[in-house]
Design a binder for these strands. Structure first.
Lengths: 336, 336
DNA sequence: TTTATTTACGAAACCGTTTTCGCAAATATT
DNA sequence: AATATTTGCGAAAACGGTTTCGTAAATAAA
């Protein structure tokens, strides 16, 4: 049973296509009686409008694009839930596009968006991204874009972030207060703002507590779990190895724990650990993990809310609306 | 700088719209010289075609729909990655739609798909779904649909599943062999095929080892973590409480562990635990978790591959292609 | 040289909606 | 009763591509 179109529906009703369309949209031009008749027949024949025809004619897609590095990550999947919760309310669909941390993929995705596939974009940039022409091109083509978490600093638009500097500081300070005197920082990118701000916070805490900041204790990790495991293991094998570690993103948690297990280093006795993480399992890890937890769901929700605010206006202006939300340090057994 | 359309591009080139369109599609009707000229100008003017116009005319969306209960779940996010890896290759986009375990949302999503938003669907049904009219309607409207993991048994189409019965059996058998004599089963739905097959495997193992199957040991959990926590806690507080638990889905892991912690029950001494789970953190839980691990990525990949096979043919026939992939029991410290 | 074929392009129809505009009939106003 | 307004609907143009078909010029075959 093929899906019928509005023309066939109109034929069945012996009405014009325009009348049917207006009736379906509850237009005041159409009598109540006719509306009821149309609705009833539409339901009976199982009429579903073609979204592409509507989008083409209406020049709006009713889609928002969500561009993120990865779905298999608690932070991003919670953020998606937040975004989706408000999109659904507005009758919008969420098109999730994954960059897998590749700049080229990210650029291609944004390029495609320029064709009008989405009405607006919520984005967290890839770890490889260190320039922003692709973003500026999209925005200047008339499609509003909001960053969350991983932002391009130099792009003038709304950015929803957390207090990365302060969190980096707090995480490090906490380790210091728990007695660590050699603290490593596991980073994921040289260009990512979140990474660098967290790192700055880390440095700031070290200097504030009169500890020397050794660059050898800042490890640049990659996108491969195996590789990170090796990297971390060799860090923890060095003589004068760190007795505290700040992991700047969630995905480093598992390789870090595994490296400790492999080296028979006890957490927190030999090494204390804080991870930036939204893992639900943080509290049941061995040992339970002290985390910097970001308000992922709320960030997604806020980003989406602001995006829709922009979409509602003809001349959106997203320049002055940036927002910094607080993360929380949740102390558990990996540091106590 | 607004995005230009093909008409403006043709104007700039002093060519007709049709010539430009053909040139962009590398048609043999167009001379090489003209093609080069078109491509060059298109690149210079940053031309990006409107996907909705193409979809409308071509009657295909180049989208596949992925309908799942949740993204914040390792199994599903890995499956998404598998699906996306093949979709990307075929030049398709993946539209992820979440049911949040609601039948009504699921029905609405499929209804919308009937309008042609997607060319095909890969789906894992909600926990509330116990009928299949909505699925049959979509399929009979000409849109191929493939199930993975959570299937509607009665719908005649390709289904990618794992050996749920055997896995339920293996999990239970393993607990028995580790010395458990009172084994509970945490279920999530009365209607879900995966749930019921895993449960049957559980029963089969019990009877095979001459253990009595007490229905009070089968607990129906919900979608709310808090509620599940309470439910599980009261299960473990009963006198004659179980000393072994099979959790039929990943999301029950955390409430289960937390309940044990709250009741000061030692895993595995007091309670042994096996979870159906793709959690990356399974190996670093306290204690590390024995899991039934499904080949999530491969399932997604396989489902997508078969879907594209169907899309390639005019008269797709997805009736004979069902596939059962093996899960693996990964023994860790929660049972040893 | 004449005829047949190929090459390279353009005009126009089409995909399925929405919306503007026009127009009769019904109703309201004078 | 004559005119003005409102109501309810239909015809047709758009939206931006793709594809079919037609055709003039160039080339090949006779």
């Amino acid at each position: 049973m093929k899906n019928i179109n509005i023309k066939e529906l109109a034929g069945e009703l012996k009405l014009s296509v325009s009348t049917v369309s207006k009736a379906l949209h509850d237009s005041h031009e159409i009598s109540e009686k006719t509306k009821r008749r149309v609705l009833k027949t539409a339901a009976r024949l199982n009429y579903v409008p073609n979204p592409y025809a509507s989008s083409l004619r209406g020049r709006k897609s009713k889609n928002i694009g969500v561009v993120i590095p990865e779905v298999a990550d608690s932070f991003f999947s919670l953020a998606i839930n937040g975004i989706e919760s408000v999109a659904k309310e507005k009758g919008y669909h969420v098109l999730i596009c994954l960059t897998h941390e590749s700049f080229e993929k990210e650029r291609n995705i944004l390029k495609e968006f320029q064709g009008g596939r989405v009405d607006g974009v919520i984005m967290s940039i890839s770890g490889e991204t260190s320039q922003s022409d692709h973003v500026n091109n999209l925005i200047s083509s008339g499609i509003p874009l909001i960053f969350f978490d991983r932002v391009c600093e130099e792009v003038e638009t709304t950015k929803i972030t957390t207090d990365d500097f302060e969190s980096g500081y707090k995480a490090t300070e906490h380790l210091i207060q728990q007695g660590c005197d050699k603290i490593a920082f596991l980073s994921i990118s040289k260009s990512l703002s979140i990474n660098n701000k967290r790192l700055e916070g880390y440095f700031k805490a070290l200097t504030h507590y009169n500890m020397k900041a050794d660059k050898k204790n800042v490890i640049l990790c990659s996108n491969k779990a195996k590789q990170n495991y090796t990297l971390i293991k060799s860090l923890l094998q060095k003589k004068g190895r760190p007795n505290g570690v700040v992991a700047s993103v969630e995905k480093l948690t598992t390789p870090l724990y595994k490296a400790c297990v492999a080296l028979k280093l006890k957490i927190p006795k030999d090494v204390k650990i804080v991870c930036f993480s939204n893992l639900e399992t943080a509290s049941i890890l061995n040992p339970s993990l002290t985390t910097i937890t970001q308000p992922a769901f709320e960030m997604g929700k806020t980003a989406a809310t602001l995006l829709f605010k922009a979409l509602a206006k003809a001349n959106f202006n997203l320049k002055g609306e940036s927002l910094v939300m607080p993360s929380t340090l949740v102390v558990r057994n990996s540091t106590t």
